[in-house]
Computed example of a mutant assay.
Amino acid sequence: MPMSEFIVSAEDDGKRIDKYLSELDTGHSRSFLKNLISSGNATINGKEIKKGSVCIKAGDVISLDIPEPVELDIEAENIPLDILYEDNDLLVVNKPKDMVVHPAAGHYSGTLVNAVMYHCGDSLSGINGVMRPGIVHRIDKDTTGSVLICKNDEAHNSIAAQLKEHSINRIYHAICYGIIKEDEGTIEGAIGRNKNDRLKMAIDEINGKPAVTHYKVLKRFPNDRMTYIACKLETGRTHQIRVHMASINHPLLGDELYASGRKSRFKLQGQCLHAMILGFKHPRTGEYIETRAELPDYFRHLLEVLT
């Protein structure tokens, strides 16, 4: 792919280079661009840089070399999919528990990507690289529910823009420890990597990214000291609902990371969290599309036992 050059304007003076490039119409995510920078594919005034945190100045000439896509070596696997919606641009699937969304260390098979590759063939966007074809957002391994897959780069760019402007409707259902007194509320707290445990996220107002979660009580279970809630995401940070609910002393039932020390009479595999509703503007037609993933069997059974 040919080298792209950009001249920094006065209004972009002082910005980090990764932020600057992510705001341009390159068709690539900020994480993808940061990886390019760390790989030596970006220069400022002809000088190679390796850090996305480097600040730029007005008049700087930035060159960006975006390599041709690497041939995908992740294997397609014939894994059944629970399809909620599909057309030539998009696919929405209901992900089961214990399924990783995209390949990573220790999980190179059996992922949602492996299954989607078999189902879609060559019809997947390539913007997020060889390990995440079609993936524009994800949910945790033990979180169930709706995941949106993009079949081409145009759809990917449109959905990514909607995620960035927080216009996608994402509603999760969860069961948490404790009785929430208020019928509804909002949690605001920037989220960043936990400094003491790299596997966890934490509230970090200095280094974290802004995050907002709205919650609504659906039912209270006084005997078990638990509450059934719906959470609407305004942002989409890693572990957002899990971190935010734990921050107000109502961690999710079964959450081994954020509810340590909490005990219940149920033996669960991970957090009790389900991505139920996903609403978005179709990238081609502009029509509002909304899908609903019904609660999985284990979740429905829990509610029956708690009631």
Rank of each mutant, 00 (worst) to 15 (best):
H102T: 00
A105Q: 04
N94Q: 13
K263C: 06
C176K: 00
N169S: 04
S260Y: 03
N223V: 07
V113A: 08
D122L: 14
V147A: 06
R220M: 09
F6R: 02
L257D: 00
T26P: 00
P96R: 14
M117V: 01
L268V: 02
I44Y: 06
D18V: 01
L199H: 03
K57A: 06
G27P: 02
I159G: 01
P283N: 07
T144Q: 05
V136G: 10
L278A: 10
Y20G: 01
D65G: 00
I289H: 06
R170F: 08
E71A: 10
R220L: 07
G59C: 09
G254Y: 12
I44C: 04
E182S: 13
L295Y: 05
Y118S: 10
L90S: 02
C55K: 15
G126P: 03
R265A: 10
H137L: 07
A275C: 03
L36Y: 05
R225N: 08
A275E: 04
L199E: 00
I127S: 01
A275R: 07
H244I: 03
R198G: 05
M276H: 12
S146G: 04
G46E: 00
G121A: 11
M99P: 03
I248Q: 10
T238F: 15
R300A: 03
K200L: 15
C150F: 12
R138F: 10
I277L: 13
E304H: 09
T213G: 04
H166K: 08
N152M: 06
L84W: 14
I191L: 11
V93N: 02
I37P: 01
Y172R: 07
E294R: 09
L295C: 02
T238Q: 12
Y215H: 08
I175C: 05
A161N: 03
T291C: 15
N196S: 08
E5H: 13
K181Q: 14
D142K: 10
V212R: 10
L257C: 01
I277M: 13
G270A: 13
N94C: 06
E154R: 14
G126Y: 11
I241C: 12
V136W: 11
V113M: 13
D18P: 03
N128L: 07
I62E: 01
G52N: 03
L163S: 04
I135W: 13
D197Q: 06
F280P: 00
R284F: 08
S4K: 15
Y172F: 07
E5M: 11
G110S: 08
I66H: 07
D297A: 14
D82C: 09
K209I: 10
V54G: 01
H28P: 01
G106K: 13
D82H: 14
K216Y: 07
I180F: 09
M99R: 07
N196H: 12
D18Q: 09
M117Y: 06
E188P: 00
G270T: 03
E184C: 13
S260A: 09
V8C: 04
S146K: 05
K97Q: 15
R242E: 02
I139Q: 01
L302F: 06
N207F: 10
I79R: 15
A174Y: 02
N128W: 06
L233E: 09
L24T: 07
P67H: 14
N114C: 06
I62P: 03
K151P: 03
D197P: 04
G279Y: 13
L124M: 13
M131R: 06
H119Q: 08
P133M: 04
K47N: 11
I203G: 04
E184D: 15
R225Y: 08
H239F: 11
P251L: 10
L218D: 11
V93P: 00
S29N: 11
